[in-house]
């Protein structure tokens, strides 16, 4: 489902060159749940951004769902992201000016789904994460765990094949973290969604199918 081949990412300034990723080769199969671990600054998020087509590798090849993206326009990339990928972030990244349901609808808005259908699908996704009763609330009125569940609802509302989660339990206490992890595991098991999750939490990582470790931008296992 996801194939990274000799991927490198180098950040260059006038005076310094920082290698964020060095010769990464990674294959994530369909319906696989892979966790990525490593110390801070080792390139986990950079790798996730490249998988999510939010950033470009300096070198190497990225293939997702059988597609390579060298010839993709910005619009085509955006469309691919919208159709195939779902994102969950450590700090939730909800839009505070939009209600819970409007936040969840966002990916469907860029898919030109009509309003009624958007509402239906967003409600369905929120029910799935147990927040059917918080649709009209605004993110500032929710707890951290609830916010992360809204973010999961937003990630799954468009039924993407792949979910990329960047430390989804990082800001949560263990109870909330476990709840979020359970939702992700269910998504993987029931909906066959491929998940790549960056985490610092060894316990969470052990719940996934496979663990990939990074150190100083290099894959160590």
């Amino acid at each position: 489902m996801i194939h990274l081949q000799n991927v490198e990412k180098v950040y260059q300034t006038k005076t310094i060159e920082t290698v964020a990723l060095n010769n990464i080769n990674l294959e994530v199969g369909k319906s696989e749940f892979v966790s990525v671990m490593g110390p801070s600054g080792c390139g986990k998020s950079t790798m996730l951004n490249i998988m999510g087509l939010l950033d470009l590798p300096s070198d190497g090849k990225v293939m997702i769902d059988g597609q390579t993206f060298e010839a993709y326009s910005d619009k085509a990339l955006a469309q691919f992201r919208n159709q195939t990928l779902g994102f969950i972030f450590q700090s939730y990244h909800l839009i505070n000016d939009l209600s819970v349901i409007d936040n969840v609808e966002l990916p469907l808005l860029y898919r030109n789904v009509n309003r009624k259908e958007r509402k239906r699908l967003a409600s369905e996704a929120l029910e799935k994460v147990g927040l059917g009763n918080r649709m009209k609330h605004f993110p500032t009125q929710l707890s951290g765990g609830q916010k992360q569940r809204v973010a999961i609802a937003r990630a799954i509302v468009g039924k993407p094949k792949i979910i990329l989660a960047d430390e989804p339990t990082g800001n949560l206490d263990s109870v909330m973290g476990n709840e979020v992890m359970d939702i992700l595991l269910k998504l993987n098991e029931i909906d066959d969604t491929t998940i790549v999750m960056v985490t610092h939490d060894e316990t969470m990582a052990r719940k996934t199918h496979r663990l990939v470790r990074l150190f100083d931008g290099t894959q160590v296992n």
Binding site: D74, Q79, Q83, F87, P107, R111
Partner: peptide
């Protein structure tokens, strides 16, 4: 800026 990043991740193009 964060909102722009979120929207881009959700499928908004540059022109969007």
């Amino acid at each position: 800026k964060q909102e722009i990043g979120i929207r881009r991740a959700m499928g908004a193009s540059k022109s969007g």
